[in-house]
Amino acid sequence: MTKIISVNDLSYQYPDADRPTLNHISFEVNAGEWVAIVGHNGSGKSTLVRALDGLIDFKSGTVTVAGTKLSPESVWLVREHIGMVFQNPDNQFVGATVADDVAFGLENAGVPRPEMQQRVQDALEAVDMWQFAEREPSRLSGGQKQRVALAGIIAMNPSIIVLDEATSMLDPHGRQTVLSVLQHLRRSNQAPTILSITHDLSEAAQAQRLLVMDNGQLISEGTPRAIFSDEQLLESTGLDLPFSTKLSQQLAKQGLIAPKHYLTDDELEDWLWQLHLTM
């Protein structure tokens, strides 16, 4: 496995803060992996992913992206490898229309116009927004805007896509459409590495690995199964309990046999069915 992101002993403190927002963080991400970063608001997740893109001027520690060590000289090279989608759909929409917004990155890279037109169309088709190409952002829903933001990134074909709570301001339908675009993208030839910050457990469950942040520190990492099994960790970091865990707790409360260890929703369904058959 090739490492596409390596973070080594990264620390950062905002100029007017009284404690560090990032406190000696080290981790690696493999090429093609989907990693989710979880933790409560203010735990430093956003600052961490911004540091990867050189949007935070950290002094201590190193970040290496696709073999390039991040420095003031290499920052634009690193940014070519990373496409970022931010939380607020409105505040990252640069273009006056959908097509203009998707073209923004291509314009910055100096892509010739005929190629640009083709890439804008392809990217918008990939997120199912081509029919809205001439729409103004004020006439789009939040989910549509985030899909346009994704199209702007797909058009640039980066090897890493970073989602900074990209679905947290969307309604369930909008969130679902954005997630299905990501799943589709994972199966495409592009198959980018995905690093997503999320509070949504069903979204986190799709990742191969979770990083848990608390108070500027990376306090745990593991598969979704490993992290979701740890009720204490989930509660102490302000995360929700998976539904299967909540139901297991309620079953025990009703005096019924409950699973002794964590099961996913699907596994719990199977488990209950098996048990039901014995009745």
């Binding site: 949007l55 634009w76 931010f86 607020n88 505040n91 990252q92 640069v94 314009e107 116009r113």
Partner: peptide, 26 residues
């Protein structure tokens, strides 16, 4: 706040000033 977010988003999308850009809209 919006301006700050927008500047960050533009930077992350490779905006280095208005020179050497191509144009989508003609």
């Amino acid at each position: 706040g919006r301006a700050d977010d927008l500047a960050t988003a533009m930077e992350s999308r490779g905006y280095q000033g208005a020179t050497n850009r191509t144009r989508y809209r003609v």
